[in-house]
């Protein structure tokens, strides 16, 4: 059991790296995702089409392949990104692809009548989005946004492949030093379990609180 005592600090450090990357990536992809969703719905054929193709590519390719294209693939053109920036860039690009769809579904779930009423009242499109549509879409989107957050935490497990010192990286390092994979990957599993179950608890609490305002 002294293996646990020896390595738990490393796992916690790795968890910090994972959470930091997830937080930055999710924040960026939510902002870009809203803009892209608006672009997809109101942006006309060309912009909307381009965004749709982007979403399809992100959804159609395996995450590992996307990460390798950014980290190893770009090096063929002498673009050498650091582990951290390659990992973050991938999380953002991937996240935007998912966030667009979440926001689009949320915005489209708000009834057309609401949009027309805002128009009739003389609100501009931006005002209508900010004051009428997004606040209502928010409630529809909350569950999928929490799923998205958990998905991104899970995606950080791939980052050890490009050398980011996340939980998996620490667990593998510990495994090669101690030859105790059961304990090391058990610790990793528990770390992810704690993070993700906490996130989904927060999500369901938020949902319940939001439901009160309906």
């Amino acid at each position: 059991m002294h293996v646990v005592a020896l390595y738990w600090q490393a796992i916690v450090d790795g968890g910090g790296v994972d959470l930091e990357l997830t937080a930055i990536a999710v924040a960026v992809s939510v902002v870009v995702g809203i803009l892209a969703a608006v672009g997809r719905i109101y942006g006309g054929k060309l912009l909307g089409g381009a965004i749709t193709v982007y979403v399809e590519i992100i959804r159609g390719l395996p995450p590992i392949l996307q990460l390798f294209i950014i980290y190893f693939g770009l090096s063929q053109f002498q673009i050498n990104l650091s582990s951290f920036s390659a990992g973050l860039l991938w999380l953002v690009l991937y996240g935007v692809g998912y966030a667009v769809e979440i926001f689009r579904a949320g915005i489209e779930a708000v009834s057309v009548g609401q949009r027309e009423a805002a128009d009739a009242l003389g609100l501009t499109r931006v005002q209508a989005l900010r004051k009428i549509i997004l606040p209502q879409a928010w409630m529809v989107m909350l569950p999928s946004l929490m799923t998205f957050l958990v998905l991104q935490v899970k995606n950080t497990t791939l980052l050890y492949l490009v050398g980011i010192a996340d939980i998996m990286y620490q667990a593998r390092l510990g495994t090669s030093a101690t030859e105790q994979p059961a304990i090391m990957y058990g610790m990793a599993a528990i770390a992810y379990l704690i993070i993700n179950l906490t996130l989904s608890r927060i999500g369901s609490t938020l949902e319940r609180r939001q439901a009160l305002y309906r």
Partner: peptide, 23 residues
């Protein structure tokens, strides 16, 4: 369901490959 949905697939994969072998 609660546990296996919260743990990343890669961790499950390493558990199935390395940890089970140790056991």
């Amino acid at each position: 369901v609660e546990v296996f949905r919260a743990v990343p697939v890669l961790v499950l994969l390493f558990t199935a490959y390395y940890s089970l072998a140790q056991l």
